[in-house]
Design a protein around this nucleic acid. Structure first.
Lengths: 143, 143
DNA sequence: TCAAGATTTAGAATAATTCTAAAGGGTGGC
DNA sequence: GCCACCCTTTAGAATTATTCTAAATCTTGA
Protein backbone atom coordinates (compact mmCIF):
# COMPACT_ATOMS: atom_id res chain seq x y z
CA UNK A 1 0.00 0.00 0.00
CA UNK A 2 1.25 3.48 -0.81
CA UNK A 3 1.44 6.19 1.81
CA UNK A 4 -1.59 7.89 0.32
CA UNK A 5 -3.62 4.74 0.66
CA UNK A 6 -2.56 4.07 4.23
CA UNK A 7 -3.78 7.19 5.94
CA UNK A 8 -7.52 7.36 6.41
CA UNK A 9 -9.09 10.24 4.54
CA UNK A 10 -12.54 11.28 3.44
CA UNK A 11 -12.42 8.75 0.64
CA UNK A 12 -11.66 5.87 2.92
CA UNK A 13 -14.02 7.00 5.65
CA UNK A 14 -17.00 7.40 3.40
CA UNK A 15 -16.57 4.00 1.90
CA UNK A 16 -16.22 2.39 5.32
CA UNK A 17 -19.22 3.98 6.96
CA UNK A 18 -21.48 2.40 4.38
CA UNK A 19 -19.86 -0.99 4.44
CA UNK A 20 -17.97 -0.55 1.17
CA UNK A 21 -14.43 -1.78 1.03
CA UNK A 22 -11.50 0.32 0.14
CA UNK A 23 -10.02 -0.87 -3.14
CA UNK A 24 -7.31 0.55 -5.40
CA UNK A 25 -9.79 0.53 -8.28
CA UNK A 26 -12.28 2.68 -6.41
CA UNK A 27 -9.57 5.09 -5.43
CA UNK A 28 -8.29 5.26 -8.99
CA UNK A 29 -11.74 6.01 -10.36
CA UNK A 30 -12.20 8.72 -7.76
CA UNK A 31 -8.81 10.23 -8.63
CA UNK A 32 -9.72 10.27 -12.30
CA UNK A 33 -12.82 12.30 -11.50
CA UNK A 34 -10.91 14.69 -9.25
CA UNK A 35 -8.13 15.01 -11.81
CA UNK A 36 -10.13 16.47 -14.67
CA UNK A 37 -13.47 17.93 -13.75
CA UNK A 38 -15.06 17.83 -17.15
CA UNK A 39 -18.00 15.58 -16.27
CA UNK A 40 -16.79 12.48 -18.10
CA UNK A 41 -18.97 9.53 -19.06
CA UNK A 42 -18.34 6.09 -17.57
CA UNK A 43 -16.48 5.14 -20.71
CA UNK A 44 -14.23 8.21 -20.53
CA UNK A 45 -13.47 7.38 -16.90
CA UNK A 46 -12.63 3.86 -18.02
CA UNK A 47 -10.16 5.11 -20.64
CA UNK A 48 -8.46 7.48 -18.19
CA UNK A 49 -8.32 4.94 -15.39
CA UNK A 50 -6.77 2.39 -17.72
CA UNK A 51 -3.72 4.58 -18.29
CA UNK A 52 -2.39 3.95 -14.80
CA UNK A 53 -4.22 0.70 -14.17
CA UNK A 54 -4.27 -1.21 -17.45
CA UNK A 55 -6.00 -4.30 -16.05
CA UNK A 56 -9.07 -2.44 -14.85
CA UNK A 57 -12.25 -3.62 -16.51
CA UNK A 58 -15.26 -1.84 -17.84
CA UNK A 59 -17.63 -3.45 -15.36
CA UNK A 60 -15.38 -2.45 -12.49
CA UNK A 61 -15.56 1.19 -13.51
CA UNK A 62 -19.35 1.01 -13.42
CA UNK A 63 -19.21 -0.76 -10.07
CA UNK A 64 -16.79 1.83 -8.66
CA UNK A 65 -18.83 4.75 -9.92
CA UNK A 66 -21.96 3.26 -8.37
CA UNK A 67 -20.15 2.76 -5.06
CA UNK A 68 -18.85 6.34 -5.05
CA UNK A 69 -22.30 7.66 -5.85
CA UNK A 70 -23.85 5.59 -3.08
CA UNK A 71 -21.43 6.79 -0.46
CA UNK A 72 -21.91 10.39 -1.46
CA UNK A 73 -18.54 11.21 -2.99
CA UNK A 74 -19.73 11.59 -6.55
CA UNK A 75 -22.84 12.80 -8.35
CA UNK A 76 -24.44 11.26 -11.39
CA UNK A 77 -25.50 13.73 -14.04
CA UNK A 78 -28.18 13.02 -16.64
CA UNK A 79 -28.17 15.68 -19.32
CA UNK A 80 -29.29 14.33 -22.63
CA UNK A 81 -29.99 11.08 -24.39
CA UNK A 82 -26.32 10.17 -24.31
CA UNK A 83 -24.34 8.45 -21.58
CA UNK A 84 -24.52 9.37 -17.91
CA UNK A 85 -21.81 11.73 -16.71
CA UNK A 86 -20.09 11.91 -13.33
CA UNK A 87 -19.11 14.83 -11.15
CA UNK A 88 -17.02 14.88 -7.94
CA UNK A 89 -18.22 18.35 -6.90
CA UNK A 90 -20.61 17.66 -4.03
CA UNK A 91 -21.33 21.27 -3.14
CA UNK A 92 -24.84 22.38 -4.01
CA UNK A 93 -24.73 23.42 -7.64
CA UNK A 94 -26.41 22.79 -10.94
CA UNK A 95 -25.25 21.98 -14.44
CA UNK A 96 -25.26 24.13 -17.52
CA UNK A 97 -25.12 22.15 -20.72
CA UNK A 98 -24.10 23.95 -23.89
CA UNK A 99 -26.16 22.50 -26.71
CA UNK A 100 -23.60 23.79 -29.23
CA UNK A 101 -20.30 22.44 -27.90
CA UNK A 102 -21.59 19.73 -25.53
CA UNK A 103 -19.62 21.13 -22.61
CA UNK A 104 -20.91 20.93 -19.05
CA UNK A 105 -20.35 23.79 -16.60
CA UNK A 106 -20.95 23.82 -12.86
CA UNK A 107 -23.10 26.77 -11.85
CA UNK A 108 -23.62 27.94 -8.28
CA UNK A 109 -27.03 28.02 -6.66
CA UNK A 110 -27.50 31.07 -4.44
CA UNK A 111 -30.99 30.02 -3.43
CA UNK A 112 -31.77 26.68 -1.87
CA UNK A 113 -33.21 24.59 -4.66
CA UNK A 114 -36.10 23.18 -2.68
CA UNK A 115 -37.42 26.63 -1.76
CA UNK A 116 -39.20 27.02 -5.07
CA UNK A 117 -40.95 23.69 -4.97
CA UNK A 118 -44.06 22.63 -3.08
CA UNK A 119 -44.12 18.83 -2.89
CA UNK A 120 -47.42 17.01 -2.47
CA UNK A 121 -48.19 15.78 1.03
CA UNK A 122 -46.18 12.79 2.17
CA UNK A 123 -43.52 13.06 -0.52
CA UNK A 124 -39.95 13.02 0.72
CA UNK A 125 -37.24 14.60 -1.41
CA UNK A 126 -33.72 13.22 -1.22
CA UNK A 127 -31.90 15.23 -3.83
CA UNK A 128 -32.43 17.91 -6.46
CA UNK A 129 -30.90 17.89 -9.90
CA UNK A 130 -31.11 21.09 -11.88
CA UNK A 131 -29.96 21.14 -15.48
CA UNK A 132 -29.90 24.25 -17.62
CA UNK A 133 -29.72 23.88 -21.38
CA UNK A 134 -28.51 26.73 -23.51
CA UNK A 135 -25.45 28.22 -25.15
CA UNK A 136 -22.20 29.02 -23.35
CA UNK A 137 -20.46 32.39 -23.69
CA UNK A 138 -17.95 31.19 -26.29
CA UNK A 139 -20.57 29.62 -28.52
CA UNK A 140 -22.88 32.62 -28.12
CA UNK A 141 -20.10 34.83 -29.48
CA UNK A 142 -19.64 32.64 -32.57
CA UNK A 143 -23.29 32.90 -33.58
CA UNK B 1 -58.07 12.34 -43.83
CA UNK B 2 -60.35 12.26 -40.82
CA UNK B 3 -62.23 15.33 -39.64
CA UNK B 4 -59.82 15.73 -36.75
CA UNK B 5 -56.87 15.80 -39.08
CA UNK B 6 -58.40 18.30 -41.47
CA UNK B 7 -58.91 21.24 -39.18
CA UNK B 8 -55.73 23.07 -38.27
CA UNK B 9 -54.99 22.96 -34.57
CA UNK B 10 -52.07 23.62 -32.29
CA UNK B 11 -50.49 20.34 -33.32
CA UNK B 12 -50.61 21.17 -36.99
CA UNK B 13 -49.61 24.79 -36.52
CA UNK B 14 -46.57 24.06 -34.45
CA UNK B 15 -45.25 21.54 -36.88
CA UNK B 16 -45.79 23.87 -39.82
CA UNK B 17 -44.15 26.93 -38.35
CA UNK B 18 -40.89 25.04 -38.04
CA UNK B 19 -41.05 23.41 -41.45
CA UNK B 20 -42.10 20.01 -40.17
CA UNK B 21 -44.74 18.16 -42.13
CA UNK B 22 -47.93 16.93 -40.69
CA UNK B 23 -47.97 13.14 -40.71
CA UNK B 24 -50.36 10.61 -39.24
CA UNK B 25 -47.44 9.00 -37.40
CA UNK B 26 -46.52 12.25 -35.67
CA UNK B 27 -50.11 12.83 -34.67
CA UNK B 28 -50.44 9.30 -33.36
CA UNK B 29 -47.32 9.63 -31.23
CA UNK B 30 -48.58 12.92 -29.84
CA UNK B 31 -51.96 11.35 -29.07
CA UNK B 32 -50.28 8.50 -27.24
CA UNK B 33 -48.50 10.98 -25.00
CA UNK B 34 -51.66 12.96 -24.37
CA UNK B 35 -53.64 9.78 -23.74
CA UNK B 36 -51.72 8.49 -20.74
CA UNK B 37 -49.53 10.98 -18.99
CA UNK B 38 -47.24 8.58 -17.23
CA UNK B 39 -43.97 9.74 -18.79
CA UNK B 40 -43.41 6.74 -21.03
CA UNK B 41 -40.10 5.83 -22.64
CA UNK B 42 -39.69 5.83 -26.42
CA UNK B 43 -40.21 2.11 -26.42
CA UNK B 44 -43.42 2.35 -24.42
CA UNK B 45 -44.68 4.98 -26.84
CA UNK B 46 -43.82 2.60 -29.66
CA UNK B 47 -45.84 -0.23 -28.13
CA UNK B 48 -48.86 2.01 -27.52
CA UNK B 49 -48.70 3.62 -30.96
CA UNK B 50 -48.52 0.22 -32.60
CA UNK B 51 -51.94 -0.76 -31.24
CA UNK B 52 -53.75 1.60 -33.59
CA UNK B 53 -51.02 1.82 -36.21
CA UNK B 54 -49.42 -1.60 -36.50
CA UNK B 55 -47.07 -0.66 -39.33
CA UNK B 56 -45.32 2.10 -37.40
CA UNK B 57 -41.63 1.46 -36.91
CA UNK B 58 -39.31 1.99 -34.02
CA UNK B 59 -37.17 4.56 -35.82
CA UNK B 60 -40.27 6.52 -36.75
CA UNK B 61 -41.27 6.82 -33.11
CA UNK B 62 -37.85 8.27 -32.32
CA UNK B 63 -38.15 10.60 -35.30
CA UNK B 64 -41.63 11.73 -34.28
CA UNK B 65 -40.63 12.27 -30.67
CA UNK B 66 -37.67 14.36 -31.80
CA UNK B 67 -39.89 16.41 -34.08
CA UNK B 68 -42.43 17.02 -31.32
CA UNK B 69 -39.67 18.03 -28.92
CA UNK B 70 -38.19 20.41 -31.49
CA UNK B 71 -41.43 22.17 -32.18
CA UNK B 72 -42.16 22.57 -28.50
CA UNK B 73 -45.09 20.23 -28.04
CA UNK B 74 -43.29 17.69 -25.88
CA UNK B 75 -40.55 17.64 -23.26
CA UNK B 76 -37.79 15.10 -22.92
CA UNK B 77 -37.14 13.95 -19.38
CA UNK B 78 -33.85 12.47 -18.24
CA UNK B 79 -34.18 10.93 -14.82
CA UNK B 80 -31.81 8.06 -14.34
CA UNK B 81 -29.53 5.75 -16.25
CA UNK B 82 -32.48 4.17 -18.03
CA UNK B 83 -34.28 5.29 -21.13
CA UNK B 84 -35.39 8.85 -21.80
CA UNK B 85 -39.01 9.61 -20.96
CA UNK B 86 -41.43 11.98 -22.67
CA UNK B 87 -43.97 14.43 -21.29
CA UNK B 88 -46.63 16.45 -23.14
CA UNK B 89 -47.15 18.88 -20.25
CA UNK B 90 -45.48 22.08 -21.42
CA UNK B 91 -46.44 24.24 -18.46
CA UNK B 92 -43.52 25.13 -16.22
CA UNK B 93 -43.12 22.25 -13.83
CA UNK B 94 -40.56 19.80 -12.57
CA UNK B 95 -40.41 16.05 -12.11
CA UNK B 96 -40.43 14.02 -8.96
CA UNK B 97 -39.01 10.56 -9.39
CA UNK B 98 -39.82 7.95 -6.76
CA UNK B 99 -36.72 5.81 -6.32
CA UNK B 100 -38.86 3.05 -4.79
CA UNK B 101 -41.63 2.56 -7.37
CA UNK B 102 -40.05 4.27 -10.40
CA UNK B 103 -43.05 6.52 -10.89
CA UNK B 104 -42.71 10.06 -12.22
CA UNK B 105 -44.90 12.88 -10.89
CA UNK B 106 -45.32 16.38 -12.26
CA UNK B 107 -44.77 18.98 -9.56
CA UNK B 108 -45.67 22.65 -9.87
CA UNK B 109 -43.06 25.37 -9.61
CA UNK B 110 -44.37 28.43 -7.74
CA UNK B 111 -41.10 30.30 -8.20
CA UNK B 112 -39.53 30.94 -11.59
CA UNK B 113 -36.75 28.40 -11.88
CA UNK B 114 -34.16 30.82 -13.19
CA UNK B 115 -34.51 33.16 -10.22
CA UNK B 116 -32.23 31.05 -8.05
CA UNK B 117 -29.43 30.77 -10.58
CA UNK B 118 -26.73 33.27 -11.52
CA UNK B 119 -25.32 32.29 -14.91
CA UNK B 120 -21.80 33.34 -15.87
CA UNK B 121 -21.55 36.33 -18.19
CA UNK B 122 -22.50 35.63 -21.78
CA UNK B 123 -24.29 32.37 -21.10
CA UNK B 124 -27.77 32.10 -22.53
CA UNK B 125 -30.23 29.69 -20.95
CA UNK B 126 -32.90 28.11 -23.10
CA UNK B 127 -34.62 25.75 -20.71
CA UNK B 128 -34.48 24.49 -17.17
CA UNK B 129 -34.97 20.90 -16.13
CA UNK B 130 -35.49 20.22 -12.46
CA UNK B 131 -35.62 16.66 -11.22
CA UNK B 132 -36.30 15.71 -7.64
CA UNK B 133 -35.40 12.25 -6.44
CA UNK B 134 -37.02 10.79 -3.36
CA UNK B 135 -39.91 8.67 -2.16
CA UNK B 136 -43.55 9.28 -3.02
CA UNK B 137 -46.30 9.37 -0.41
CA UNK B 138 -47.44 5.80 -1.01
CA UNK B 139 -43.96 4.34 -0.78
CA UNK B 140 -43.12 6.48 2.25
CA UNK B 141 -46.10 4.92 4.05
CA UNK B 142 -44.91 1.38 3.31
CA UNK B 143 -41.50 1.93 4.89
C1' DT C 1 -5.60 -20.38 9.03
C1' DC C 2 -10.17 -20.70 7.19
C1' DA C 3 -14.70 -19.56 5.71
C1' DA C 4 -17.73 -16.08 4.24
C1' DG C 5 -18.63 -12.47 1.71
C1' DA C 6 -17.18 -8.54 -1.22
C1' DT C 7 -14.80 -7.31 -5.42
C1' DT C 8 -12.64 -7.75 -9.87
C1' DT C 9 -12.26 -9.64 -14.39
C1' DA C 10 -13.44 -10.82 -19.36
C1' DG C 11 -16.74 -11.41 -22.07
C1' DA C 12 -21.51 -12.28 -23.15
C1' DA C 13 -26.05 -10.34 -23.00
C1' DT C 14 -29.31 -6.84 -22.98
C1' DA C 15 -31.13 -2.28 -23.67
C1' DA C 16 -31.35 2.18 -25.90
C1' DT C 17 -30.55 4.74 -29.72
C1' DT C 18 -28.93 5.86 -34.30
C1' DC C 19 -27.90 4.80 -38.99
C1' DT C 20 -28.75 3.13 -43.74
C1' DA C 21 -30.76 2.40 -48.04
C1' DA C 22 -34.85 1.86 -50.38
C1' DA C 23 -39.62 3.07 -50.87
C1' DG C 24 -43.41 6.22 -50.22
C1' DG C 25 -45.74 10.69 -50.20
C1' DG C 26 -46.75 15.71 -50.55
C1' DT C 27 -45.86 20.24 -52.71
C1' DG C 28 -44.53 23.74 -55.87
C1' DG C 29 -43.26 24.83 -60.68
C1' DC C 30 -44.42 24.06 -65.21
C1' DG D 1 -52.21 17.28 -63.95
C1' DC D 2 -47.19 15.75 -64.18
C1' DC D 3 -42.61 15.79 -62.48
C1' DA D 4 -38.77 16.62 -59.58
C1' DC D 5 -37.42 17.48 -55.11
C1' DC D 6 -37.24 16.81 -50.58
C1' DC D 7 -39.17 15.14 -46.35
C1' DT D 8 -40.70 11.02 -44.09
C1' DT D 9 -41.28 6.18 -43.17
C1' DT D 10 -39.77 1.49 -43.02
C1' DA D 11 -37.05 -2.75 -41.67
C1' DG D 12 -33.26 -4.12 -40.14
C1' DA D 13 -28.44 -3.58 -39.20
C1' DA D 14 -25.14 -1.13 -36.44
C1' DT D 15 -23.61 1.30 -32.64
C1' DT D 16 -23.51 2.75 -27.96
C1' DA D 17 -24.48 2.27 -23.06
C1' DT D 18 -25.19 -0.59 -19.40
C1' DT D 19 -25.87 -4.85 -16.91
C1' DC D 20 -25.15 -9.68 -16.09
C1' DT D 21 -22.50 -14.02 -15.36
C1' DA D 22 -19.30 -17.18 -13.60
C1' DA D 23 -14.84 -17.85 -12.13
C1' DA D 24 -10.89 -16.04 -9.77
C1' DT D 25 -9.10 -13.03 -6.20
C1' DC D 26 -8.99 -10.43 -2.10
C1' DT D 27 -10.34 -8.90 2.76
C1' DT D 28 -11.93 -9.54 7.12
C1' DG D 29 -13.34 -11.60 11.19
C1' DA D 30 -13.69 -16.01 13.84
Amino acid sequence: MSAAEKKPDIFNERLNTLGFRFTPQRRRVYEVLLGKRDHPTADEVFVRAKKQMPEISHATVYNCLDALVECGLVRQVQLDRGATRFCPNMREHCHFYCDDCDTVFDVGLPVKAQDGVALPKGFRAKRFEIAIHGVCADCAKKD
